[in-house]
Write a protein that binds this DNA or RNA. Structure first.
Length: 273
DNA sequence: AGCCAGGGTCTGC
DNA sequence: GCAGACCATGGC
């Protein structure tokens, strides 16, 4: 049956900014009422705000209530973190540009697969590739749609199977990732509990996973908030920080990075230089 | 019509 | 260790 869950009040949280700032690739645009459709833990749900409270609606979603809560990381106090970051003038500009961004806790394998597809690619195209990937090889989700494909299933595919994705040379990368996870050569549980340098090295055993993708997986899939992915937009942003980020920001470098990324990316999309 | 993109690999120094 | 060629694709 269709259920609605109302979570606790959470200010400093904007769904559009959070879901469409380049950390996740499968959320819909908002509908007329401002609700977004997506899939978490094999359940289709829509999320929206009722006043200050996040609400989720979908079939039997009480089964995954804890996972939804964790996905949006509702316990983390963003007011405190933003106040800290805003001691820096540039960071403060980035935060003010989209103050409702939060870092999601995505499924580690989905984050890994998604950011393998992301390399040297545009966000709109990444979304298309991942959509086709899920539709072709994902399990049906409760309430409709398809989940991100299991790596065991992907490990049994070949390049021809992936041709419809039109993901280019990244086809062998996703296969290598799925095979190394299935064989246990790379272990997500070990990465989860390892120190961050060990975790980086583990992830980079996978073909197609270099420093940037590894950092994205650590940040978005393992919630290592100190991870700091550097792409072209962040490279430009770093010109403002000749000595690197201020030291007090480093424990939350990944969060700072996301504000900077979104700010720089939307500025360049609107043609400002 | 090119330029560009949430880069990585491979080769040659 | 580091620079540079190369990689497949399509949105803009």
């Amino acid at each position: 049956m269709t259920e609605t869950i109302k979570f606790k009040s959470c200010p400093h949280f904007d769904l559009n900014e959070t879901l469409h700032c380049g950390q996740a690739f499968r959320w819909s645009e908002p509908d007329e009422s401002g609700a977004f459709y997506g899939i978490i833990a094999g359940h289709k749900l829509n999320v929206y705000f009722d006043g200050d409270s996040l609400c989720a609606c979908g079939e039997n979603i009480s089964d995954i209530k804890d996972k939804i809560y964790s996905y949006f990381d509702l316990d983390l106090d963003y007011e405190k973190i933003k106040n800290l970051l805003c001691n820096d003038k540039i960071l403060s500009e980035a935060v003010i540009f989209a103050p409702g961004i939060r870092i999601l806790k995505q499924d580690p394998w989905e984050a890994l697969g998604s950011f393998i597809f992301s390399s040297n690619n545009h966000i709109t195209r990444i979304s298309g590739i991942i959509d086709r990937f899920c539709q072709l090889y994902g399990k049906e989700a409760v309430g409709g749609g398809y989940d991100f494909p299991d790596y065991e299933r992907v490990s049994r595919l070949n390049k021809a199977d992936l041709a419809p994705l039109r993901c280019g040379y990244r086809d062998e990368y996703i296969l290598d990732a799925a095979r190394k996870l299935t064989s246990g050569e790379v272990d997500l549980d070990i990465i989860c509990s390892a120190d961050i340098d060990t975790a980086r090295k583990e992830l980079m055993k996978i073909k197609g996973v270099g420093p940037k993708v590894a950092e994205c997986v650590l940040l978005f899939g393992f919630h290592r908030l100190e991870a700091f992915p550097v792409d072209v937009h962040i490279k430009r942003a770093l010109e403002f920080f000749p000595d690197g980020l201020p030291e007090y920001a480093l424990p939350y470098a990944g969060i700072a990075q996301q504000y900077l990324f979104h700010w720089m990316r939307l500025k360049s999309l609107s043609g400002v230089r």
